Computed example of a mutant assay.
Amino acid sequence: MQTITRRLGLRPAMLALAVGLMPLAACADPGGTTSTTSTSHTTATAGDPDMKDQMATTLEGTSPTIADALRSDTTTITPVATAALSDWQVVDVLPRGGAHPQRWFMGVKDEGREVVVLSGFPQRWAQVADGARVTSADQAEELAGVYADATRDMSRGYARIESVDDMRFVPSPSQAESDRIDALRRERTEIAAANASGDGPWTVRLWTVTDGDLVRHDVEVATDGAITDTTQVVEADLPVPQTV
């Protein structure tokens, strides 16, 4: 079995300050821009056109492709429930149409004047979790699921599952694949919805199918929102489509 551990300590948010005549400023780390700040002022809520415009303005200097997508009329912004977060909100940005559809999860603060692209950058979670207060197992389960969904590599197949029945198997399996599907249904009864243990910090167990592998996540959620995600591939090369 393959075990991968990612340890992310919570640190104070690294906020970019706009100065002088510069409309945008960014904080950078080895993985790229972690936060972009704009000096323009609007009043907006997630999903509102003003929010989209403000986010696009904030990102146009560092992520022009995402900024262009945000300005499209077909792009939707959906808030993601994260009760434990303080000043930041996680949103799901989904452009519709086009030959190569893309999707991003982002942290948004101050009505879109600060934006952190989370997809593919788990190290940026600490910035979005700044000021978080996790007070219950339910909040820990919610935050662990959002972390798994939002920070994943969007170029890889992914589905968060709660049972074998949630797996989308190949439509015309061979006999060997059918036998394996039957074995999975018979043997993998431990797969369940996200479930927290402990009294704070909590360990939340959840399950995903990632690039065709069944992966178990043991996500430690601290009371301040810090995340440690330990993953283990428990079934490799499932009989699922390549995009799952």
Results as ranks from 00 to 15, higher is better:
Met1Tyr: 10
Gln2Met: 11
Leu8Trp: 07
Leu8Gly: 02
Leu10Tyr: 03
Leu10Pro: 02
Arg11Gln: 11
Val19His: 13
Met22Asn: 15
Ala26Val: 13
Cys27Asp: 13
His41Arg: 15
Thr43Glu: 14
Asp48Lys: 03
Asp53Asn: 14
Ala56Cys: 03
Thr58His: 05
Glu60Leu: 08
Ile66Pro: 06
Ala69Met: 14
Leu70Asp: 03
Thr74Asn: 09
Pro79Val: 08
Asp87Gln: 10
Val90Glu: 00
Leu94Cys: 11
Arg96Gly: 10
Arg96Trp: 10
His100Arg: 13
Lys109Leu: 14
Asp110Met: 09
Arg113Gln: 13
Val116Tyr: 10
Arg124Asp: 06
Arg124Glu: 04
Arg124Asn: 08
Ala126Glu: 08
Gln127Val: 12
Asp149Pro: 00
Ala150Phe: 01
Gly157Cys: 07
Tyr158Ile: 00
Ala159His: 10
Arg160Trp: 01
Ile161Val: 08
Phe169Ala: 06
Gln175Val: 11
Ile181Gly: 03
Ile181Asp: 06
Arg185Thr: 11
Glu187Tyr: 12
Arg188Val: 09
Ala194Thr: 02
Asn195Ile: 13
Gly198Gln: 06
Pro201Cys: 09
Trp202Lys: 02
Val204Ile: 06
Arg205Pro: 01
Ala222Phe: 09
Ala222Trp: 09
Asp224His: 05
Ala226Asn: 08
Val233Thr: 12
Ala236Asp: 12
Pro239Ser: 07
Val240Arg: 00
Gln242Arg: 13
Val244Trp: 15
Val244Lys: 08
Val244Ser: 14
